[in-house]
Design a protein around this nucleic acid. Structure first.
Lengths: 317, 317
DNA sequence: ACTAATTACGTAACTAATTACGCGATGAAG
DNA sequence: CTTCATCGCGTAATTAGTTACGTAATTAGT
């Protein structure tokens, strides 16, 4: 075992796997030589796919063996030059290049099978001598990673840690500028400022808070980076709006935290439901709302031009 | 899982390992981006070796992390250009290029550790969820391969099968030409023909068989490819000689089979021991003789110039 | 002490894959 | 029925490593 693995811990799993697979590949190459089958080791998987005689398009082979189509294309070219493959056009679709084995290719088959048979037997024998079943272990790991890959898992940890840098506070007068700027910027990026915007954004204290609404401010590492508001329409109708998060802190879940805080606040204020208006072209936003529990509804027309979807969250209890 | 693995069986273990390790590497690359540590992923192992502050020569690092020295040399160059490493000459040996981390490199350490810590935790978690321990499985496999690698194992199988093509037969008049040619060729390749050679090779029936000796011929796939003889000197002294195997069938163990047959014959003829003469520069031959049980002795001077070593096999019973 | 072999390392050439890009063929949407 | 996105594939450029080779420094063998 390499010295480095004595210190890295399991983090280096990827490298160890690579190292082992490279060692196996190197030995396999020597095996190919031994059997004098006239196949370049790298042709092996393509040959394997075609040995039964079927004709397959490049991309289908690529997908089956886990290579890029470009790689298969190159290999097929080499094998064709060696007289092992031939290509034929697919009748219905002139784009498709179907390749299949030639008679010369077929003549290599018996040697190939003898060799792979021995190889198979050796690996079986080898795995039989192991207490821990590496084959099963790989399958398990594959399965777990399909569910949630390493990146996503590390990202969760990362975000957990990063959460300590996020702070939610109630709106105070000193946030007026940030509140306005963040929202203006957000609207300008996707739409145009409308008249109803200016009123709200320029005097939130009067237009939102004084009417029984609520504004929450998100800080990241001390500076204001996000806003969200509840706008009270009447005793039964309260709206979630003015959600804006600075681009530089996208992906940290700040939007979700802001939304959650507003939903909690609405509950606290004894509303039975919260509604919101948005636009279907803002896919990430819509997803966020869904994650918060909002469902699409058909409601009254919005005063904002940019809105073409309404959503509603009804509290269960 | 890729389609191909559904049919290949365990033979494709190497490819599966490679595939898994590549998937992990790809995800790891995304993790590096997330943490914004200014290290190219491929610098990772070198950085790991040097992060404690030690100065290490290129080859030492290469060996520890399992790369070629050329690769480490290139990486070190890049990292030096990035200001992360510096090199300093080793005092006693002007060939050695010791590299170590700079202050700038050290400044990356905290981010690096945070990241590797999270990574480690994730992998640990992942492995904890597996019933089959892939880490242990790799170690086991490593160990087994160190004992006898895949190539050697397959080769054993191959030779077993190939043995069916090898046939040992007693010398008959029809083998005279082959016997002479194989031996002439062998001697010419390494030495010069001497006078004692010609006599034996041109008339083996009289010079060897008539004097109570023995000649065995090896055929491979029907054609004569090897010879070996026992030359009777007197009632107590018999010599193993004229072992020649055609180059095209080297490595199939034909020499060993020939030798074994002659030794058996000597036993059958009631000799208590067999001796032989050879030359130390023929390492493979000497090894073969050792494998047959011969031990080096100091004997009488040989009639052949090419001989500088004598060996003896004494039967135990 | 001199020659030969070995060591450390850098550069160059090669390898086996990838991603990027372009082109013609196809199909979907107004 | 035309236009625009997408598909299949080939070629080019890139990448991360390897082996091969040359050179200078050191060690070993006579």
């Amino acid at each position: 075992m390499l010295q480095i693995y004595e210190n890295t811990g399991k983090m280096a799993l990827g490298s160890r796997l690579k190292q082992l697979s490279e060692a196996l590949a190197k030995q396999a190459a020597r095996v190919y030589q031994l059997y004098e089958v006239d196949l370049d080791p790298k042709w092996f998987p393509v040959f394997y796919m075609l040995k039964s005689g079927s004709c397959l398009p490049i991309t289908v082979i690529a997908e089956a063996i886990g290579h890029s189509h470009a790689s298969v294309s190159k290999i097929a070219k080499e094998m064709t030059a060696a007289g092992i493959l031939k290509s034929e056009k697919l009748a219905g679709d002139a784009r498709v290049n179907q390749v299949c084995i030639t008679d010369k290719g077929r003549s290599l088959l018996s040697g190939f099978e003898r060799q792979t048979g021995d190889m198979e037997a050796v690996v079986d024998e080898l795995l039989g001598q192991c207490q821990h079943n590496i084959w099963e272990a790989i399958s398990e790991l594959d399965y777990l990673l399909e569910e949630k890959d390493v990146f996503a898992r590390v990202r969760s940890k990362f975000l957990d840690r990063d959460k300590e840098n996020i702070e939610l506070i109630e709106y105070r007068a000193e946030h007026a500028t940030s509140f306005r700027d963040l929202n203006y910027e957000w609207i300008n990026k996707h739409f145009e400022i409308e008249q109803s915007d200016s009123a709200m954004l320029d005097d939130p204290e009067k237009q939102i808070l004084a009417k029984g609404g609520y504004i929450v401010i998100a800080k990241y590492k001390g500076s204001v980076v996000g806003t969200c508001a509840l706008i009270r329409h009447d005793a039964n109708r309260i709206e979630l709006a003015k959600m804006a998060v600075d681009d530089s802190v996208k992906g940290k879940g700040i939007g979700y935290l802001l939304g959650q805080r507003c939903v909690d606040k609405a509950k606290e204020l004894d509303f039975r439901q919260v509604f919101l208006e948005s636009n279907t072209k803002l896919k990430p936003a819509i997803n966020l709302y869904k994650k918060l529990g909002f469902k699409r509804i058909v409601g009254e027309p919005s005063p904002y031009k940019r809105c073409n979807i309404q959503m509603l969250l009804t509290f269960l209890d």
